[in-house]
Design a binder for these strands. Sequence first.
DNA 1: TAGTGTGAACCGTTTCACAGCC
DNA 2: GGCTGTGAAACGGTTCACACTA
Lengths: 186, 186
Amino acid sequence: MKDENIPVTSETLGSYLGTSGDSIRRDIGCLIPKEGKGHYEKRPLAEEIAQAFGFEEPLKICLVGLGILGQYMLQTMDQWDHAKIVLLFDTKINRLERLDQSIPAFPAWEIPEILPSRGIKTAVLATEAEEAEKNASRLFSGGVKYLLNLTGYYLRSPHGGIRIKNINLLSELLCLKATLQNQRKE
Amino acid sequence: MKDENIPVTSETLGSYLGTSGDSIRRDIGCLIPKEGKGHYEKRPLAEEIAQAFGFEEPLKICLVGLGILGQYMLQTMDQWDHAKIVLLFDTKINRLERLDQSIPAFPAWEIPEILPSRGIKTAVLATEAEEAEKNASRLFSGGVKYLLNLTGYYLRSPHGGIRIKNINLLSELLCLKATLQNQRKE
DNA sequence: TAGTGTGAACCGTTTCACAGCC
DNA sequence: GGCTGTGAAACGGTTCACACTA
């Protein structure tokens, strides 16, 4: 890879992220111990940000739920450097058997037994909505600290040390419609 | 269905949504023309909210991209009352042929030709990231006003009349890790 | 008395404005 | 001159406090 110390402006970065140059500068100012006063350069900046957030080595992730959505996560993350799925669970054993994966896979009720020894902090929950609550608490008691919940069932964090991101793909559509419809009211 | 004029408190509603009763009351106050001063009741309240947002009849949705993620959307929305997928597109013709669907399906390059006559305002984009930009502009010129973009490629709205919700399932994981890591720094 | 509706205070974020630096 | 870094103002959303009502 060639030397990528090419300059980037905060404004350009902002445009990639859908925000302003002002905000970018503020955020970078918080993250990076401010010594360099010069202009931003692509590679060193990226490295400093990655370091500030702890992105140097890939995240090890546990995936629960091997339905169609779980398979999608498995597939797309395969081509991704920043995180790797290293452990699989599902409630349906036949799904696990059908799998020709190099990634170890177990029935979901074995989470409490298997997870703790692996030191995995991050999980993706992609089961049916009905199984969300139960599997989430299994994960938390197994040591998971960050949960990406794709089930559509809204989960609340049991305490401050655990972060949950709830994503409900269906309701996003209604939100979109609602916001646009509402802004017309003016 | 039995009569559901049962009372609900703002606090209870808030707990379902991960917010406070105060906020719920504020929001309801904005949405509903405030005449009833009494306590909230489940069904009438739900109906008034649905009406305020225009949720009475199901959203008609167009789905672009029939990969694994698109198939997931197709599958889950099938069991959902609030929105229905009524039109499909994909760039790969063999995917379209393999489909035994009652929903009409066309190659993506025919969007500009087919979409306008259908009066569809809402679309889900679930193609490869590389095809996001091109298909999005096809959709917009075909009359789409709300776009749920699941490709992972960040799209910006061409103007105020169009709303885009970008969801990047992969990067959500990094965000989660970053926020938790950061709050430790205190 | 429990719960709503709403001004007023509060707080985190974004934008503005501008001084300093390359 | 263009860009960064950062106080100060502006903004939007949340919380507080409390009068009002069923």
